[in-house]
Amino acid sequence: MSMRGVPFHWRRYRERYMLLGTQCAACGGVFFPMRSICPHCRRDGQPRPLAFSGRGTVYSFTVIHVASEGFETYTPYVVGVIQLAEGPKVTSQVVDCPPDAVYIGMPVEACFRKLRDEGPDGIICYGFKFRPVDAPTQPG
């Protein structure tokens, strides 16, 4: 997609780099992505940042063969819905293992990775992906 300015990426960096969500101090509800209002308590809510452990399991997954612009060089790659240990689900890639090794229920942990770049003059986008809990660390 067309190149976006730095603030578009920067304002979300804490959530994407550290897997931060929200816990409402009023109802205890836990949410990802971060919320400025609690969807349950609404104006009576007290949303506070919450750092997730990064531990979770694969709830569903797909192997992307036809990628969107910016991800073509990564195909085939796995995109999963990950059920976090704290309750909420998130979507990101599952890496450090062959696509056919991924299964529903697979234990995974968050890792910090490059997502894509916006071309030679654009920003490099980073964020969390997930890897099998027992996978050896790999670059990339």
Binding site: F61, I64, V66, E69, V81, T91
Partner: peptide
């Protein structure tokens, strides 16, 4: 990429999900 705008751009497409990919996640589950 334009159709990716029908889902959440910042929390789905940004991480490499495509529109067919989102329906594939439903199908797999």
């Amino acid at each position: 990429a334009v159709l990716s705008g029908a889902m959440d751009f910042e929390w789905e497409a940004y991480f490499g999900a495509t529109f067919p990919g989102i329906y594939a996640l439903m199908a797999r589950r």
